[in-house]
Nucleic acid binder design. Structure first.
Length: 940
RNA sequence: GCCCCUGUAGACCAACCGGCAGAGUCGGUGGACUCAAAAUCCAUACAGUGUGGGUUCGAAUCCCACCGGGGGCACCA
């Protein structure tokens, strides 16, 4: 802007400078007056004199951010602004609205950033949080400032640790279908009402055995199991943190399957409830589908195959195909592999089965090494080509007594089902491929339809080759479903197996070999078994260490082993504590919790953030999360958390519900995923991304200097070099313009490209609204107390009616359109009637709160409009006196008639027939359809 | 490979239970203001709804097939 042009601008126009002044002033006032503090029913956050004390409550929540080093870009605030508009609207509409913001401060991203910059993660995280907070404040978000939380603060993670102790201190009772305190389990063992696994009386078990037995039942437990080891990050990862192509979601490093001793959470115990309770939720179909699929419940049977090494139990969804099981396959890591491996190859073994090894032991150990060295990426890339090796051992098919070979192969996963399968090549494509490669027999047990020329047949058909008089299993002729039922019944009668359910979901790997996370409230005594610290010792504060970086390795160093940073803090690790048996030496757990821990319950801490005797006061919990519609009333966040945060948080909430700490089994009743804003990104001739900020448009093409570059739209971020920050737009246009623009681009849940130049439309709109109230030359009010004319008044009431409905339904884009329409109806007037100006300011407030407050103030109101009643429409002004009906003849509009709005159907019909009489040429129409208020359709 | 979502003016989007394809924004064009320009204001044109079928008096909307775009899962027995 040149000096000359600045001089030309009317002095009281709504410019960016004016907007910025207004915005800073109102933000200060809101903060000073605590405008957006929502009262609790009791406790330190109660306020009986508050305008919404005792009003119906509403809980609006955003997925809180990780404060990354890059700050907010224009995509982040979309959801935050959306919830803010909704919350401000509901507050004006009479609700006591809780809306707060916190920070997910622990975890990999913050720590990786800290390592890159060589600073302590606390320092970088705090700096990042300060930057985020400033950016958010500038957007004018109406958060209750008293309720902010940071997961890295000891006052917060004390309760994360406390919840961990609740999980550790409980077990899942499958009969009761809920978690119960571990003391109940001990009591049952002690009373003999629950037998110990080996039948010895509880009283006779040595103390260590008792503890092991109890520990095996806990919802948080230590186990040695196959996990995802990521050398590049130096830590293990949960399944949910590994992408479909077998790399770490953070950092994109390869992940290796590795058997390690780790903390797990028994989320699988809740698998059925996590599926069933999705029915209680108003969530996008896509998210519930993803959760259902991730849990992956499948029904079938466990079948035991006798071997020299004892029975091998397999899981199958097709017990009806038992007769077609011509070999068994075990995962290379299966515990029975060593026992099954023969001393020597049986006579006449095909060469492909041995892979050229002289002994089965040699072949097995070579294959195991081969499989273990493969990353997930490689394993999946090799999926087409089946590999495996014969163990030299055999099993007996219980259906017909056939002696079948036992293989190991990496197409069988150790972590799913029992880690062993019965291979039925005729009915399973994977088994077919393997059978082809290893020359194994194929027996059809489901008859494919006439003319079927495929390989494995997985469809419906009658069972064949599936009866044996000796064993009594007769399935021939049965359809798949009947045959399954008959096979399961036979398995259970004969003791060869049992109907079973398996889940894709696996227990949640809960420990990380990192520094920046919650320490476990766990120590180990001389037995090496975990001991929970008492509540009185919480929080276990994360110690300061010289070197907070985890030991990382070459990303492809599959043989490396994790090393926790806390294990280097010797003084902290080795402690003397009195846990009731006098002072003794203990060793602390040196893993930390995964970053999801803190976000599993933050929605409850907002309810009662200052409580230091409970994670949340039960009354506050019941007030905000209970009632006729329990749970968070609106939760907005990205779809990328579909199976991470949202699954973990539901699990923790259910445990807390079972133990009586919360009043309802689900935390987030209504979920909306905000869309992703995609930014323009540019590639040069080599296909490399170039700094988007330096690209200019000339004549419809894009240039970096003199070189033409190609534009595409993609996820905003460092990798595409296209970060656009909200700050620039706040400076150039004002936060209100930015808010209106983001909301007007489309529905909240739709992704859309960011188009910088289009923002001026929102800017002009606010200028027109401003100009309708304030004279640009003098700054005086342009408002008259004279009444609005009939047409304008009707427009106003239609707008009020529509905007209310749009806000309530999160249709902010159409609310903006209606407000623009109303504003455009004012631009030609010499003065704006107050009866329109005031509701306009109020209706504008959720979207553009600063300018709305300023207009409201200038219209003579001393108080903030945050609690002013939202305008209501007069129903009488919503219906027009007359209605124009289009008249269709054979589907084409041939005429129009205007009739009174309350005209009877016969009147409309007669008028319509008269209007198109020439079309009908005197003939009686075959059919006349009158759609009241809409149209008339005539069939000739 | 399997599952889900989605295709409307040049772009972003409206169109509620099937009822006149257009609320709004950008951009285009013309005009006002200006010495000129920017900014601002005013006025305009532009699609028959991805394609092909079907149901219906009537389809952007419902059904089927195909094509394009996006997302999820992917050796889960």
């Amino acid at each position: 802007m040149s000096e000359a042009s600045a001089a030309d601008t009317p002095p009281h126009r709504y410019t960016a400078a004016v907007a910025n002044e207004i915005e800073a002033r109102w933000q200060r006032r809101w903060a000073d007056e605590g405008t957006f503090r929502a009262p609790n029913p009791t406790g330190p956050l109660a306020d009986p004199g508050h305008p919404r004390a005792g009003a119906p409550q509403m809980y609006v929540l955003d997925m809180f951010p990780y404060p990354s080093g890059a700050g907010l870009h224009v995509g982040h605030p979309l959801g935050y602004i959306g919830t803010d508009v909704y919350a401000r609207y509901q507050r004006m509409a009479g609700h006591n609205v809780l809306h707060a913001m916190g920070y997910d401060a622990f975890g990999l991203p913050a720590e990786q950033y800290a390592i890159q910059t060589g600073t302590h993660p606390r320092a970088t995280t705090e700096a990042n949080i300060a930057r985020y907070a400033a950016q958010l404040r500038r957007l004018g978000l109406a958060h209750d400032d008293r309720r902010t939380v940071r997961t890295m603060d000891p006052a917060y993670y004390r309760w994360t640790q406390w919840i961990f102790l609740q999980v550790f201190g409980s077990w899942y009772d499958p009969q009761a279908r809920r978690a119960r305190p571990i003391a109940d389990l001990v009591a049952e063992f002690a009373a003999g009402t629950r037998p110990t696994p080996d039948g010895r009386p509880w009283a006779e078990l040595p103390e260590v055995d008792r503890r092991r037995l109890v520990d095996d039942h806990r919802l948080a437990y230590v186990s040695e199991a196959p996990v995802n080891w990521c050398p590049g990050l130096g830590t293990v990862l949960a399944n949910e943190e590994v992408t479909a192509d077998g790399r770490s979601e953070r950092g994109n490093f390869p992940v290796y399957p590795r058997k390690l001793r780790q903390w797990m959470m028994r989320i699988t115990a809740y698998a059925d409830r996590l599926v069933e309770d999705l029915a209680l939720l108003e969530w996008p179909e896509a998210i519930t589908a993803m959760q259902r699929h991730w849990i992956g419940r499948s029904t079938g049977a466990h079948v035991d195959f006798a071997t020299d090494a004892g029975p091998v139990r397999v899981f199958t969804t097709r017990p009806d195909t038992l007769f077609g099981a011509t070999y068994l396959v075990l995962a290379p890591e299966h515990p029975l592999v060593d026992a099954l491996t023969a001393d020597a190859w049986p006579a006449g073994v095909p060469a492909v089965w041995t892979d050229g090894h002289a002994t089965p032991a040699g072949a097995v150990s070579a294959y195991r090494a081969f499989a273990a060295a493969k990353s997930e990426v490689e394993r999946q890339a090799d999926a087409k080509e089946k590999t495996g090796v014969f163990t030299g051992g055999y099993a007996v098919n219980p259906a017909n007594g056939a002696r079948i070979p036992v293989f190991i192969a990496d197409y069988v996963l150790a972590g799913y089902g029992t880690g062993a399968i019965m291979a039925v090549p005729a009915q399973d494509a994977r088994d077919w491929e393997f059978a082809q490669a290893y020359a194994l027999p194929i027996v059809r047990t489901v008859a494919p339809p006439e003319g079927f020329d495929g390989e494995a047949f997985t469809g419906e058909g009658p069972a064949v080759n599936s009866s044996d008089e000796r064993t009594g299993l007769r399935l021939d002729g049965l359809g798949v479903a009947q045959a399954k039922a008959a096979a399961v019944a036979w398995l259970e009668e004969t003791g060869h197996g049992v109907g079973a359910v398996s889940y894709r979901l696996r227990d949640w790997l809960f420990s990380r070999q990192r520094y920046w996370g919650e320490p476990f409230p766990i120590v180990y005594d001389e037995t090496g078994l975990p001991v929970a610290l008492p509540e009185s010792m919480l929080p276990v504060v994360l110690p300061e260490v010289e070197d907070f970086a985890p030991r990382t390795f070459a990303a492809d160093d599959a043989a490396s082993s994790p090393e926790t940073p806390l294990s280097r803090a010797g003084e902290w690790t080795e402690v003397e504590l009195d846990l009731g048996e006098g002072p003794r030496r203990y060793r602390r757990e040196t893993n930390v919790m995964p970053q999801w821990a803190g976000s599993c319950w933050y929605e409850m801490r907002y309810l009662d953030p200052t409580n230091d005797t409970a994670f949340v006061d039960p009354q506050a919990e019941r007030y905000w999360m209970g009632g006729a519609h329990p749970g968070v009333d609106l939760y907005v966040g990205g779809a990328e958390h579909a199976v991470l945060h949202l699954l973990y948080a539901r699990f923790w909430h259910k445990v807390l519900f079972d133990l009586g700490h919360v009043s309802h089994p689900e935390p987030f009743r209504r979920l909306v995923n905000q869309g992703m804003i995609q930014g323009p990104a540019y590639t040069d001739g080599r296909g490399q991304y170039v700094e988007a900020a330096r690209v200019v448009e000339r004549g419809g093409a894009f240039y970096l200097g003199d070189e033409e570059v190609r534009r595409e739209f993609g996820k905003i971020g460092k990798s595409l070099k296209n970060v656009i920050t909200p700050d620039d737009f706040c400076t150039e246009y004002g936060a209100d313009t930015f808010r209106v623009y983001e909301m007007s681009m489309g529905p909240l849940d739709a992704s859309r490209p960011w188009e910088t130049r289009a923002i001026v439309g929102s800017y002009r709109f606010l200028q027109r609204a401003w100009r309708a109230v304030v004279d640009e030359e003098s700054g005086a009010l342009r408002v008259t107390d004279a009444p609005a004319d009939e047409k304008l008044r009707r427009l106003l009431h239609r707008t009020v009616d529509g905007v209310r409905a749009d806000y309530a339904a999160l249709r902010f884009n159409t609310a903006v359109a209606k407000l623009i329409e109303l504003t455009n109806g004012l631009t030609q007037l010499a003065a704006t009637p107050r009866e329109v100006a005031e509701p306009l300011a109020l209706m504008l407030a959720p979207l553009a709160p600063h300018v709305a407050e300023e207009l409201w103030h200038r219209l003579g109101h001393a108080d903030s409009l945050a609690y002013a009643p939202f305008p209501t429409a007069d129903p009488a002004l919503l219906v027009d006196d007359a209605v124009t009906y289009p008249v269709q003849v054979n589907g084409k509009v041939r005429g129009r008639v205007e009739v009174p709005a309350d005209a009877a159907e016969e009147v409309v019909r007669a008028a319509a027939l008269a209007a198109v009489a020439d079309q009908l040429a005197g003939a009686a129409p075959r059919k006349v359809i009158v759609v009241p208020g809409r149209m008339v359709s005539i069939v000739r």
